[in-house]
Each structure stands twice: as C-alpha cells, then as structure tokens.
C-alpha cells in the first residue's frame, strides 16, 4: 500500500525538479527572443545614436563581414589556443600542488597566506609585468591566464583534500596503500569531483581574463578584436565579438560539464 504512494510522490518531485523537456528548451529561447526584441526596439526608436548602439542588423552584417575576411575565425582560434595552454599549465601545476599542500600540514600553514594573497590579486594587475617580461603575443596572455587560474585551482584542491573522510585513509592503510599509490589511487579520486568543479570555475575566470589580456598584449584574439573595433569606432563589430565570446564561453563550459558525467565521479554530485 505504501510503496506505490512513495514512488508516485517521488515521480512528482522528480518532475518538479526537471520540468518538462519542451519547457526547458522553450523558456530560455523565449527570454533570448525578448532581449533581442528589446534591442531591436531601442535601436529602432533611436534612443541612442547608431554609432553608440549598433542595431542587430548592423551586427549581423559585420558578423558576415568578419567571417568572410577570416578574421573572426582566426581570432577565435588564437583565443582558444591561449586559454587551452594557460589553463592546462595551471592545472598540471595547480592540482598536484594542491594535493601536496593538502597532505602536509606545515607546508599548508606556510604557503596558504601567500597563495590567498595572489588569488585575491587581480591577474590584470600583472599586465605591466606580463608585457615587460614577455612582450607581445601568446606568452603574456598565457602568463596572465596562468596567474588567474593557478591559485584558485591549487587552493580548491587543497581544501578538497581536507574534506576527505578519514575512513578512506584507514581503509587505504588496511590494504597497504602507500606513497604515490596512495596519492593516485585514493587521495586524487576522492577529490576529483571537487577538482572538476574547481576546473569549471577557474575556466570561467580564464575566459574572462583572456579578453582583457588580449586587449593589451596581443595582435589578434577575441579581446584584441573588440579593442580594434573600439579604435575604429565600429561598435557593430565589437558587439559581434561580444556575442561570440559569450556563446563560446558557454559552449566550452557545457563541454567541461560533461566531465561530471564520468561514472567514477558521479558519487560526488549525488548527495
């Protein structure tokens, strides 16, 4: 008697949480259409002069223009490359450093204030040094991305290690896990769900920082594209770049979100 009742209410609550598939698709589309309409309307009634607020049509035109000139694609590739390199370097150092700090109390006590200092120091503050040290091109941008993501990644990994239930280490001891094996087979998988979340967060930071970095330190890239549009008073082109940056950023986050679907990390998200 009780069973069907609970499963029914469970179904109901699942439906509440997920909503219907059509609505889930339709609702955001409606919001986006509304924003576009508002934009149309404001530019139509000339609330602002056309050079200060380009119309959707002008943006569409400039999109076509940039595509045909090949500049947009080139800039996308340049930015993606820099983010990928900077991010991968930050992750390859940040995650192991975080694991190490998490396991050594004195190292943790010694380094955490310093790491926190750099985490709260905006990476953009490094721009003068980046350009002085690395001149113009990929290197200063990659350096800035590293500075932006290394510290949050290391700190997040470190705090994740502190939350590992002690029972896992007891079991590990019962079965003779030691040293590097303990690290790779117990500590790392135990924090992996939290590390994936940290990766997504710091990727978000990286994608924000790349635009600023490219405005000053590069001759191409999406940030540079906006900067050049401003210099040429081509805000239609700037808006076109803005849309590309937003859409690409979301897309890559969706890709990273796929990591949370890995079977051996699901446990970390189902509590």
């Amino acid at each position: 008697m009780i069973k069907p009742k609970t499963s029914e209410s469970q179904l109901a609550s699942v439906a509440m949480r997920k909503g219907s598939a059509t609505l889930r698709f339709l609702l955001p589309v409606i919001v986006i259409l509304c924003v576009l309409l508002l934009w149309f309307f404001i530019s139509y009634i000339n609330l602002f002069p056309a050079y200060a607020l380009p119309s959707p049509v002008a943006v569409l035109k400039s999109f076509k223009e940039e595509m045909l000139a090949g500049r947009l694609v080139n800039d996308i590739i340049a930015s993606l490359w820099r983010v990928a390199v900077g991010f991968v370097i930050a992750a390859t150092f940040g995650i192991p450093v975080g694991l190490w700090l998490g396991q050594h109390l004195y190292a943790k006590q010694a380094f955490v204030p310093m790491l926190n200092f750099f985490r709260f120091l905006s990476p953009l503050a490094w721009i003068p040094f980046a350009i002085l040290w690395f001149h113009i091109g990929d290197k200063p941008a990659i350096f800035l991305l590293f500075m932006a993501t290394f510290f949050p990644l290391a700190l997040a990994t470190m705090s994740a290690v502190a939350t590992i239930p002690s029972i896992y280490f007891r079991v590990a001891k019962d079965y003779n896990y030691k040293g590097i094996e303990l690290l790779t087979k117990v500590t790392f998988p135990a924090v992996l769900p939290q590390v994936i979340t940290a990766l997504r967060v710091s990727y978000g930071i990286a994608w924000v920082v790349i635009v600023a970095a490219e405005m000053v330190g590069c001759q191409d890239g999406l940030g540079y594209g906006i900067w050049e549009a401003r210099n040429g008073l081509r805000l239609d082109s700037a808006v076109c770049y803005m849309i590309v940056i937003g859409v690409l950023g979301m897309g890559i986050d969706r890709l990273l979100a796929q990591l949370t679907k890995l079977p051996n990390v699901r446990w970390g998200y189902e509590r």
Binding site: P165, I167, Y168, V171, V186, L192, W267, G268
Partner: peptide
Amino acid sequence: HDGLFPWL
C-alpha cells in the same frame, strides 16, 4: 558504513 571507495 562508508568503508567502500565510492569512485570504484
């Protein structure tokens, strides 16, 4: 309880 490794 919880002695199993949840990632395995």
